[in-house]
Write a protein that binds this DNA or RNA. Structure first.
Length: 186
DNA sequence: GCCAACGTTGGC
DNA sequence: GCCAACGTTGGC
């Protein structure tokens, strides 16, 4: 029996690594290094399988939004940035013998016609219990229920021709918070 | 910039 | 094992 496909969401600060940066990568593929939270790592390591679809979310953006879709093209393997002292996410406790942290490879599947901001997502009843929308949620890698995934994708379809005034202008105020991301690598 | 929510650390 | 202190995340 093939496994039922699972759905996920990853967060990144666009000032750090945006979906457009992903689009510019060779083969539009990147390793998702830099995750330094155990719960997030466990989802990466144990949950994400080849072909799983992954919402791409921009945090610390204006507005914070789901901006597209990626697909898992390589399952978990050790995150070597963890034992690189020069890396922003260096972890002195990690080593090649004891990697601690894992990453997957993600390939861009689609940039949505427009960003789907938090306010808009909150209007969907199907997303009432979505982890992303939970107050205080900080998980940078999180599972998405199939029904939630479908609801967001329906919104994307309806977003293809946005009604006048419904388009959130994603003007970035580049808050000068240099680099601090738990999820992205640049 | 503020601050609530959360995760981690370390004294005990 | 408890929990206060601290650092980080991330919406606003």
């Amino acid at each position: 029996m093939p496994r039922t496909p699972a759905y996920w969401l990853v967060k990144t600060e666009p000032d750090c690594f945006s979906i457009h940066d992903l689009a510019a990568c060779p083969k539009q593929t990147t390793c998702w290094s830099g995750v330094r939270n155990f719960q997030a790592r466990n989802f990466l390591r144990d949950g994400m399988k080849l072909g799983d679809q992954v919402f791409f979310y921009h945090s610390n953006a204006a507005p914070p939004s789901i901006v597209g879709l990626a697909v898992v093209v390589r399952e978990a393997y050790p995150d070597a940035t963890a034992w690189d002292p020069a890396d922003d996410h260096y972890d002195p406790k990690a080593s090649p013998e004891n990697p601690t942290w894992q990453m997957v490879d993600l390939k861009l599947q689609e940039i949505f016609p427009r960003p789907l901001g938090l306010d808009e997502l909150r209007t969907l009843p199907a997303l009432k219990n979505m982890e992303l929308l939970r107050k205080g949620s900080r998980l940078s890698v999180q599972p998405v229920a199939a029904a939630e995934f479908a609801a967001v994708m329906r919104l994307v379809q309806s977003a293809a021709q946005p009604s006048p005034g419904a388009v959130a202008k994603s003007v970035k105020k580049s808050a000068s918070k240099a680099k601090r991301s738990s999820a992205a690598r640049h």
